[in-house]
Amino acid sequence: MIRVVGVHKTFGPLHVLRGITLEVPKGEALVIIGPSGSGKSTLLRCINLLVEPDAGSVFIDGVHVNRPEVSAEWVRQQVGMVFQSFNLFTHLTALQNVMLGPVRVKGMEQEAARVKAKQLLARVGLAAKAEAYPAELSGGQQQRVAIARALAMDPKAMLFDEPTSALDPEYIREVLDVMTALAREGMTMIVVTHEMGFASNVASRIVFIDAGIVLEEGHPNQIFGNPQQERTRTFVSKILR
């Protein structure tokens, strides 16, 4: 479903991605771990072309997408994204946040979009908060609305960039539950997270990225229980604690 081949990205003198290759088959959940600054966010942003890769290829559903002929807007409709800082549109209610994409990008009728948005909010457990503005919601609620907003575009895959890192501990569970349910329903996902419980239960594979390369990759049991690389071992011991 998503294939990344030899992707490089530099920001000025900084060589952030140094030839990343990975593949996520349809219906699988891939978890990415790695130290801060290792390029995890940049990699996700290369997949939905928020960042343009300097070299290498990104394939979505078999389509080579980082080519001038392919519109970035089209690619972003195929893969939804959830950010660490939620980024809900502050001037719109939860319902309007979820409706915006279908109405403006897909040209859906207001009423149909409203019905769909309500279903999605119900799915993330927020039917009662449809008319609330982001500033009136807790972090966990905001992030769940953000997931509903991304799902409203009927994406083929979802990217999660540390979706629970900005949350108070008591709100992490509710967001992970929504993501777990999504994975169980067969959504293809790439999740950057250091939530080991989630990674062990949900991920089919874990990729350890360090300094812009995939250092190690494998089943959760292997990465957490028996890492092959010294760097992986050090990092995993830090986050397992």
Partner: peptide, 30 residues
């Protein structure tokens, strides 16, 4: 207007002018 707002709009597939019209402008205007 926080740049995450524009990124979220782009990530939904809005074109630059749509992101301006529906996300950035209403907040900047306010």
């Amino acid at each position: 207007v926080h740049r995450g707002q524009l990124e979220a709009a782009q990530a939904l597939g809005l074109k630059p002018l749509q992101a301006m019209r529906h996300v950035v402008l209403p907040q900047a205007f306010r």
